[in-house]
């Protein structure tokens, strides 16, 4: 069996899902036996090559994420939404209850610690926030979802191991479904 290519990508989330991924501990050795991790916040890969599996944490919150997820979809044979934010927006989506301007003003302009001096960051290098945060599946086709905030390390390993061994995981039957 040829070695598979695996990427893990961090979009609009808190990186907690990646922390949970690291919590698979020494089982990461079992993963790298079957796959090369070619891009991830925890390795030094810069570009996303064509991969067999892409684990994507976080929701789509900005123009940058939007472009990125379209690129990931193009490059990945199997796209897995990792965690509640990627699957159903979760905490990231809590700003959707309010108009975007109200939200950024609350953080940058009206925050008490700004002493009335706050202003909106406006550098051209910065990403532009979308009006509404959406889960991955509203932008691209998602092949598998792992809900949870964060998903348990055991669940992440189970899903990875199944896909790397060319099997289809089932969170319902294995009683691994969890939100929050």
């Amino acid at each position: 069996m040829t070695k598979k290519k695996l990427a893990t990508i961090w979009l609009g989330g808190c990186s907690g899902c990646h922390m949970s991924l690291l919590d698979i501990d020494e089982r990461i050795l079992d993963v790298v036996k079957l796959a090369d991790i070619v891009k991830s916040p925890v390795v030094d890969g810069k570009e996303l090559p064509e991969v067999d599996i892409a684990l994507v944490e976080g929701s789509i919150t900005s123009d940058e994420h939007y472009k990125e997820i379209l690129h990931i979809r193009k490059q990945a044979k199997t796209l897995i939404a990792l965690g509640d934010c990627a699957v159903m927006t979760n905490v990231t989506g809590m700003r959707n209850y309010f108009p975007l301007k109200e939200v950024v003003d609350a953080a940058y302009v009206n925050a008490v610690s700004n002493d009335g001096q706050g202003e909106l960051p406006n550098h051209p290098c910065l990403l532009r926030l979308n009006d509404k945060v959406v889960p991955l599946q509203e932008v691209v086709k998602v092949d598998f979802v792992i809900p949870g905030c964060p998903p348990d390390a055991d669940t992440i390993f189970y899903v990875l191991a199944e896909f790397l061994n060319d099997r289809l995981p089932d969170l319902g039957k294995t009683k691994k479904l969890k939100y929050g």
């Binding site: 159903m88 959707n96 509203e138 319902g172």
Partner: peptide, 14 residues
């Protein structure tokens, strides 16, 4: 968990 909901297929109303 009992009905096997792993994602929400409908847009959230927020």
């Amino acid at each position: 968990y009992k009905t096997g909901v792993d994602n929400i297929r409908y847009p959230h109303l927020f």
